[in-house]
Design a protein around this nucleic acid. Structure first.
Lengths: 330, 330
DNA sequence: CCATATTATTGAAACGATTTAATAAAGAAG
DNA sequence: CTTCTTTATTAAATCGTTTCAATAATATGG
């Protein structure tokens, strides 16, 4: 240690953390020694003593999905500004991997965790808070857990999608989405039902729901192909769980010899950057991805820095419809 | 602490790290207590004792680019397998941000750093190694720095692109790419020159190089629009720095009233997932993105775990051409 | 049945910082 | 010249783990 300056290590600590209490002359001497020895405090020791790091954990189901990429960017930027750093955890929608990562993050003493749980709210989440780790749910409502959350009005998104198709004359609509234990999926379906209930009974469209195991293009292609093979094209429009799913569905529909939007209208969700550049520019429900991440990071950080006077809050953004060429009137 | 099992903390440590030396009965008891108390070892304390963390830093210029997303996924997966965790740093191609992140990572005592430097090799990189932090260059040759590197044969990629266009009759080719201080950009141009040199002198195509400040779609659109406005369409094909740049270029070309591939052939680089689903499915040079990240992570980890008998190595992958609809014969 | 070898567990030191209480030195007041 | 403040510095405790030497318990052999 830097007692090359002829002082005790307590004084060194003071020189770094409370320079004002040192005699100017001593301070100068210590600083010189610090410089000469290129002394850099050991973060682990500091953490161990203080019990808190400046690390956040971000747990997402699929970092390949540009939605989460943009979100992660928002988180990173907000974190950097506050002097935090982010550990990225990709779960591939696998609950076990999710749990494993949560344990690792807890072990790393992260100060806060931002998570989009892959499935229904994870039991482990309660333990996180109990451990004194900040927690914010991202793009998920906070049901059953007492935390902050940042979400988008999914019911409204579902409603927008359905109304759009209804107005264009579609009466047989497929909903190609994830498992119903995903709160978000459930919410959007609720919004769709709400939209339907507003329509006069005689004219109500029928919905055929097709669930896919993973929210990826490949998964969507497989399920859609099977559906068409078994039941034919028993719909004129598809509402997809996200844009990747929409791309996958389009691929399958085309492979079966149909065209978009001539034979089938397709609507995506998230409005990722590529939606505009897709083979058929994709009609989609836009969400403020970057802002979602940014706001979420600000929330956990505020919780971390001021745990006692922190009140959990829920920020909700509104989605909106972007009409492009993948949907048309019939 | 978990002396609920009625053992000393030394025994708990043994139960976790060298279970074979414990009496089976004791082991069972300790494990039960660990479960019940949801005990997770404190990484800071472990780190303090061991003098080393199990954290890697990944520094990339643009996490929004699916190329880096896939790469990051590879890094994460390899890291998870070895019990490491990854801090993600996005620099937006900004050297200052890059330096700042490197300092932060050093302060966090990361065990190793994986970096794709935005510009010419960063001076700070030498300091990293000196500090005993593992270092591997990703998707960049290691010039001037003594490290491991994982790269793709960029010269060959450039050659493939040029040969493809030459074979299809293109003789006036634009190269829309980044600053020449990016080694990768330089390498690809070298490959293109090599391809040209193989062609009989009379028939050699001319190359007009247009550099863009950032490797993003927006940046490409701006530069391409300006070029067309000033000089008209003085080329029949464009070789782009990456697929995002290609999308941006296509947007500008279309906005100017031309069609792809009728008026201009466009070739991208990276073959990101969306290349196949793009408005015009994009011809591109494919790189093994995930493997690149995976291999890089394995390299740093091996360096970290065995610093003394580690020999720096350079892994090189080969790119290959994927022909789609954005290029055609003239 | 004792001595020795073997196995299982424990106690204490160490890692590197922060922090608090204690001490030493200097200055002011009586 | 004491005594009391004030200021500057230090010694020691602490954080949660790992590790090694020491001890206790059990088994083996003579």
């Amino acid at each position: 240690m830097a007692e090359k300056a002829g002082v005790s290590l307590g004084t060194v600590s003071n020189a770094i953390n409370r320079p004002e209490i040192l005699a100017p002359e001593t301070l100068k001497r210590v600083r010189k020694a610090i410089d000469e020895l290129k002394f850099i405090p050991n973060a682990s020791a500091q953490t161990l003593r203080a019990g808190k790091t400046r690390i956040l954990g971000l747990v997402v189901p699929d970092i390949s999905n540009p939605f989460f990429t943009d979100l992660a960017k928002g988180v990173n930027d907000a974190a950097l500004l506050a002097g935090y750093v982010v550990i990225l955890c990709n779960t591939d929608e696998d609950s076990e991997k999710e749990d494993h990562y949560i344990d690792i993050l807890a072990g790393q003493n992260v100060r806060g965790i931002l998570i989009t749980p892959a499935h229904e709210t994870n039991k482990r989440l309660n333990e996180i808070s109990k451990r004194g780790i900040g927690l914010t749910l991202v793009d998920r409502p906070s049901i059953g857990v007492d935390t902050c959350s940042v979400e988008v009005n999914d019911a409204h998104g579902g409603l927008l999608a359905l109304e759009h198709l209804y107005e264009r004359g579609h009466r047989k609509i497929m909903c190609l989405t994830g498992e119903s234990d995903i709160p978000q999926v459930a919410e959007r379906e609720r919004g769709m039902r709400e939209a339907i209930s507003r329509i006069s009974k005689a004219d109500r469209p029928t919905i055929v729901t097709q669930r896919i195991p993973m929210m990826t293009a490949d998964s969507a292609t497989t399920v859609m192909s099977e559906h068409i093979a078994e039941k034919g094209l028993n719909f004129t429009a598809v509402i997809c769980g996200n844009d990747l799913v929409a791309f996958g569905a389009i691929r399958a529909i085309r492979a079966a010899g149909y065209s978009i939007p001539e034979d089938v209208s397709v609507i995506g969700y998230d409005d990722i950057d590529f939606a505009a550049n897709a083979t058929v520019p994709l009609t989609s429900i836009a969400q403020p991805k970057y802002q979602l991440g940014y706001a979420a990071a600000e929330l956990v950080i505020s919780e971390c820095e001021n745990p006692e006077k922190h009140a959990h809050q829920k920020i909700q953004f509104q989605p909106h419809l972007i009409v492009r060429n993948s949907t048309r009137s019939i």
